[in-house]
Amino acid sequence: MELEVSDIVEAVSELVKRGYDREYRIKNGRLRDLATGTPIAASDIHVDAALRFESGSDAGDGSNVYAISDRATPGKGLLIDAFDTLDRHCSRELFERLAAGRQTKRVAQPDVPSRYDLRKIYKSEFERDPERFVLRIDFPDFPPCPFGQSFSVLGFDTAEQQYVWLVTSILRDSRLARVPYQEADTPDNA
């Protein structure tokens, strides 16, 4: 499927109009339908469209969107890899199926100060104080996702106490601490 879009938000909007209304995520290395919680076998997916959007002069920050049909069900949905990290989170078979034939579009946004209303952190700022930034996973207080879906991870500036957009090269840096959400124990007042 050919799409004439200029950015990932426009791509998601166009794909939703074309009936891709389910939200897919990678959980434990497998593709899952978030509405049903069921895993989808890599052999059951058909990638109808795959787009990669790169910004910055060095293409160090990228996002991907995949329009997927589930051959085992009538479901069609989107997998959004806003942080360009799927290769680290899914099986090789699934990643190869997703990335095959992916189109790359360069977005003219070199050195923008923010992305999706979040302050953008470049590698140079991270290098000055790597312990200042963490990657929060599945926190309930994430800001709204501009794609109409939901974030599963976001950068967090511990000094400013605010969510930030970390460029891809930071997400791949082994010094970045990953902090999964853990619900606080609440006392039983009954």
Results as ranks from 00 to 15, higher is better:
178 R>E: 11
145 C>P: 05
161 Q>C: 04
106 R>Y: 14
22 R>G: 03
147 F>M: 08
78 L>W: 10
122 Y>E: 14
20 Y>N: 03
31 L>W: 10
74 P>Q: 04
158 T>E: 00
40 I>N: 06
165 W>F: 12
184 A>E: 12
137 I>Q: 08
175 R>E: 10
155 G>A: 03
52 R>M: 10
75 G>N: 14
126 F>L: 02
49 A>K: 08
84 D>E: 11
31 L>K: 08
96 E>I: 03
61 D>C: 12
148 G>E: 08
179 V>C: 01
70 D>T: 04
50 A>Y: 05
154 L>G: 03
39 P>S: 15
108 A>F: 13
130 P>W: 02
78 L>C: 11
33 D>H: 03
70 D>F: 08
163 Y>I: 13
133 F>A: 01
78 L>Q: 07
135 L>T: 02
42 A>K: 02
187 P>G: 06
61 D>H: 07
59 A>R: 13
16 V>K: 09
35 A>F: 13
34 L>T: 15
68 I>E: 11
126 F>T: 02
60 G>P: 04
32 R>M: 09
105 K>A: 13
180 P>Y: 08
78 L>D: 07
70 D>L: 05
101 G>Q: 10
72 A>T: 07
186 T>Q: 14
120 K>Q: 12
1 M>R: 14
24 Y>S: 04
10 E>K: 12
76 K>F: 01
155 G>S: 01
158 T>K: 00
61 D>Q: 07
180 P>N: 11
115 R>A: 10
88 R>F: 13
119 R>K: 15
94 L>K: 06
51 L>Y: 13
62 G>T: 10
177 A>G: 03
166 L>Q: 12
31 L>N: 06
125 E>H: 08
45 I>A: 03
106 R>I: 14
116 Y>S: 07
128 R>K: 15
82 A>Q: 02
174 S>I: 09
11 A>R: 07
190 A>C: 01
130 P>T: 03
42 A>L: 03
166 L>I: 12
160 E>T: 07
67 A>G: 08
109 Q>T: 13
123 K>R: 12
154 L>Q: 04
139 F>K: 01
183 E>M: 11
121 I>R: 13
7 D>V: 03
116 Y>I: 01
140 P>M: 00
80 I>N: 09
47 V>N: 07
91 S>N: 05
10 E>G: 08
40 I>A: 05
152 S>P: 00
13 S>C: 08
19 G>D: 01
106 R>F: 15
86 L>Y: 06
160 E>S: 09
120 K>D: 05
67 A>N: 08
182 Q>I: 14
157 D>Q: 06
136 R>E: 01
29 G>I: 00
178 R>N: 05
148 G>S: 06
171 L>T: 04
61 D>L: 07
38 T>V: 09
128 R>W: 04
119 R>H: 15
31 L>V: 10
178 R>F: 04
158 T>R: 03
66 Y>D: 04
121 I>Y: 14
150 S>K: 14
147 F>H: 13
14 E>M: 02
13 S>A: 15
183 E>I: 05
75 G>K: 14
33 D>M: 02
97 R>M: 06
38 T>A: 12
186 T>W: 14
162 Q>N: 05
107 V>C: 05
120 K>V: 13
25 R>P: 01
101 G>M: 09
97 R>T: 15
17 K>D: 10
8 I>E: 03
139 F>A: 01
57 S>E: 15
154 L>W: 04
167 V>F: 06
185 D>C: 10
143 P>H: 13
150 S>C: 08
99 A>G: 00
158 T>F: 00
79 L>S: 01
22 R>C: 06
